[in-house]
Design a protein around this nucleic acid. Sequence first.
DNA 1: AAAGAGATGGTCT
DNA 2: GACCATCTCTTTT
Length: 193
Amino acid sequence: TTRMTATDRRLVDRTELARRAPVVAPALLNTLLVADVEGARVVGRIVETEAYDEDDPASHTFRGPTPRNAPMFGEAGHVYVYLSYGIHHCANVVCGPEGRGEAVLLRAVEVIEGIDTVRRRRNGRPDRELTDGPGKLCQALAIDLTHDSTDLLDPASPVRLERDDVDPPGAPLVGPRIGISAGVDTPWRFRVP
DNA sequence: AAAGAGATGGTCT
DNA sequence: GACCATCTCTTTT
């Protein structure tokens, strides 16, 4: 058996992320999303995710590769960022094997470090509403199109994933996805209990 | 507490 | 030219 070191514990395994989106989505719960924002370190614990894959009419990859969705077909562990409704950004963790258009939408995080920075960026909104939506968390962590396709597992990346040291979450709550018009019956939304 | 509407721009048909 | 994997503010129960 091998002994896990302090640095090992902070890494997220890329091969785990290369599994199917509906498997990765619940597995990402409780993982830390870390961003360098205005010179400060902001950390959010992922508490809600949604899976999308290319067999899924709600997915950006359902109709095949395009310039926009190209990152979803790339290496697992990179981020796919898109502009939503011309105003908000949404961040996805690319997963699945290379060549398959799959990703996990980050729907909500809980701020565990850098709360002051986040409050400022979110214009003093109540703490409950700081990062409880995919557009809100991108505004809070300053994630935008300039980050599209960057590697979330690269410690030098301005946005990255780190493993949490706390106890694993219990069985996630499962339900239908939000804000879509097709694929509404597929229960691919996951939330920490 | 819930429902409605406007903002706003990239992407694809 | 239509369509959004959304958010916020306003209006209505």
